[in-house]
Structures are given as structure tokens and as C-alpha cells.
Amino acid sequence: MKSIKNHISLVLALTSILFAIQTLIVTHRALEAYEKNLKTNYSIVVVSDKVLNEKTLKSKSSLIESVEDIEVDDAIKRIDSSISKNNLELLKLSLPDFYKLTLSKYPTPSEIKQLKKQLKTLSGVKKIEDFKTSYDTSYKLLTLFGTVVTVFSVVVFVITSLLILKELRIWQYIHKDRMNIMGLFGAPKWLSSAVLFRLAIIDAVISSFLVFIAYAFIKNSDWLGEKLSTVGIDIEIFDFVNDFPILFVAAVLLSILLATAIAFSHKEEV
């Protein structure tokens, strides 16, 4: 019973840490997906009196991925069919050139400010429309959510690490006698602490599977799928093939660290 209790304490602590890690991974993956989604749909428009080519525009910022001329013909045709052909030609000549710039990533407010500043140095540029306000609200909300999750995960990590340290002291006490006795008969450190490492690895395996099962359950929840598609996230944010090894290695490393700390802090009683 005592032994089960000791297992449970470490398994719970490890599971909390793994859950925090997995939550961080999933949240950041979701944010990345949303950012990608925004990036695909987002572009800025540059209005210029002079003709600009792609090379000139790209030289102003590495953020610019591609440049596309916006044809004004269709827009003019839609204005009014009663305008005479000559006037239409005149209007077309008097209109500036429009360029649609797509970016390599969804820019932050400071990046967009810098980009606009750079583009304005180009001769002929009259106006730059960034359409940022309409995109920004939901993005900022998601970024805030990401920050909150990160802070939460760090807090969970710190608190659980303190719990593990407490657990370490309990384990030290429990295993002290056996390690002492084995030491008296000349057992090397690795042998006298082998039980610790075995227990730690077993607990790491149990915790990894617990988190795996919990996330498998969440993944198959209709509720979550619905919520994610509402915010336009349509990717596999639960990537078990890549995530499980990360969690497993993290759990094993943490528990081995714990066992090593106990083994090396053990002092023979005189």
C-alpha cells in the first residue's frame, strides 16, 4: 500500500508536468495554424503613382513574399456603364497603380509599422492599406490565450517540480536503509540505486500513457473539434506520433534526474 502511494505521488507529479508540456505544444500548434491561416488570407495594398516592380518592393522588407499587380479594369467597368469610353480611358490613365503584397508571416503591429515606413520611402507611393484592424482582434485574443496557457504551464511546472523535490526527500528516506546496507557489502552506486531507477522509469511510462490517453479522449471529443473549426483551425493539432516520444522522453529524463539526485545525495551513515 505504501509503495502504491509512493508511485501515485510521482505519477501525479509527472502527469501534471507532461500535461503542461502537451498543452503548451497543442496551444502553440493551434496558434501557428491560425497564424498560417491569417497569413494566407492577409495582404496589404500599396497605391503608387509610379510603376513599381517586385524586386524594388521586396528590397524594402524581407517580410514581403510576393507582389501582384491589381488590375483596375474590372473595377472601372463596374463604376458606371454610362461613362463614355474616352472618359473611361482618361480615368484609367489618371488612376495610380495598385499592388497586392502577400507576406511571409502574419506581421506584428511593430513589423507592419516598420514595413509601412520602409514602403513609404519608395518614390511614388501614396498610400498603404494594411487592413490590420479587422484581422487583429481575433489574433490578439488568440495570442493572449497562448500567453495565458504558457504562464499557466510554467506555473504548473514550477509547482510540480517543488512537489517532486518533496517526493525526492520521501524517497531518500524510504530507500536510505537499503542503499546503506548494499553499500556496506560493496555495492556500486548504480546497483544500490537500481530499484530507484526502475521505479522512476515505471512511473515515467505510466505518466506518459496517462497523458496519451487523456489527450486521445480530448482529441475524439466533438465539442473540441467544433470549437476549433469555429476559429478556423482545421489541422491535426494532436500529433500523437510526434508528441508521444517528446512526452515519454521528458518523463523518463525527469524521473531519471530525480533518481540520480537521490542516488548522489545519499550519504553512508557512520
Partner: peptide
Amino acid sequence: RSKLNLLRRHIGIVFQDYKLV
């Protein structure tokens, strides 16, 4: 420590309080 371990492997020790696991 390693030399001491080697030596202890050739010694048997008995205590008043037995020191059994």
C-alpha cells in the same frame, strides 16, 4: 569509493541491529 567497494566485497559484516532489508 571504488577501491573501498572492492574491499567490502571480501568482508562480511554483522551488526547488533541486524541491518537486514
